[in-house]
Simulated scan of single mutants.
Amino acid sequence: MTTTFAAPVASVRCYTATTIRILRQLRADPRTIAMLLLVPTLLLTLLYFVYKDTVSPPGMPRLFDRVGISMLGILPFIVMFLITAIAMQRERTSGTLERLMTTPLSKLDLLAGYGTAFSVAAAAQAGLACLVSFWLFDMQAAGSVWLVLLIAVLDAVLGVALGLLASAFARTEFQAVQFMPVIVGPQFFLCGLLVPRGELPRWLQIISDVLPLSYAVDALQQVSRHSGTTADMWRDLGIVAAFAAVALALGAATLRRRTA
């Protein structure tokens, strides 16, 4: 009986210790905390003033409402991707990751710990952005604010997972940053924010259909148009969550011990 439960208990302890360590590191870095929490909110503030005096046709929502609700998912995704990829790569270059790989800590426990720690930060980030957008700038959506918050957090977690995966293929922090236009750029252009996905050329629609951010934006648009939950929204959230889980698993599979 003791042997049966020893391995899972040890795994949970390693995972928990990793999560706590990363959270403590974040707390000790005020500049990173400021970027995590404030950048999406400041960009949404800028977007509000860009669209503040734009007149919408009668019966149509404000342009800020239409664009801003999508940005509540896109901005946390971008920021968390960048922060996570750089932070993980810094662990490599500092030798911390190399030392951790010599301990009983499994690859999945390691990445799960990072993912959980940054997901906590992502929840705070998305919560602040939603608070400012809905209560300060009076963003309007047919659905619940809590659904918008849920989707925004899940988008940020997706950014964390993809950032961890990208860091596995980078050898320097600069290379980690270079993955941003490759991974984030196409998703931003094809997610439906700039042009509705149905109006894209067919070959671009096919590409858009395999990019997770497309489903995140679709879920937010569902909340903006419907007062309750919809089957399409839950399907979109399931796809985003599946992408995040697969990215985390691939990150663990590609994690290798590097020697100087």
Rank of each mutant, 00 (worst) to 15 (best):
A117S: 12
L105A: 11
K52Y: 05
K52L: 07
F134R: 07
L44S: 03
M80H: 09
M88L: 14
T41H: 07
S56M: 10
F134A: 07
S119L: 13
L46E: 00
G95Y: 12
A112M: 14
T116L: 13
T102F: 14
T102I: 14
P104W: 12
V39F: 12
C130M: 10
L105P: 01
F118H: 04
R99L: 15
A129I: 10
G59F: 11
I69D: 00
G115S: 15
I74N: 00
A142F: 09
S106E: 04
M101A: 09
L131K: 03
G115F: 15
V50P: 00
L42R: 05
T45F: 11
S56L: 06
D109I: 05
A122E: 04
D65V: 06
S70W: 00
T116W: 03
V39D: 02
S106R: 13
F134Y: 14
T41Q: 07
M101D: 03
W146F: 13
V120T: 06
V67W: 01
L128Y: 03
T54M: 03
A121Y: 11
R66K: 12
F64N: 05
R66F: 14
S56P: 01
C130F: 11
M139R: 05
R62I: 07
W146M: 08
V120W: 05
V132S: 02
A85N: 01
A121R: 07
T103N: 07
A141G: 04
L108M: 11
F134N: 09
A123E: 06
R66A: 15
L63P: 00
L42S: 08
P76S: 08
L46Q: 04
T96M: 14
G68H: 02
L42A: 15
L110F: 15
T93F: 05
F81E: 01
V120P: 00
S144I: 13
E98P: 01
W146N: 02
I86T: 11
P58D: 13
V120H: 02
G127H: 03
F134W: 12
C130P: 01
D65G: 08
R62S: 13
K52P: 00
G73W: 01
I86E: 02
K107C: 06
Q125P: 01
F49R: 06
I83W: 06
T93Q: 04
S119N: 06
A124L: 15
D138M: 09
G73L: 04
R99S: 10
A122M: 02
L147C: 05
A123D: 03
M60I: 13
S56R: 07
T116M: 04
M71R: 04
A129Q: 04
L82W: 06
Q140R: 12
K52I: 08
T84A: 05
I78M: 14
T103L: 12
A126W: 02
L131M: 13
Y48R: 15
S70A: 02
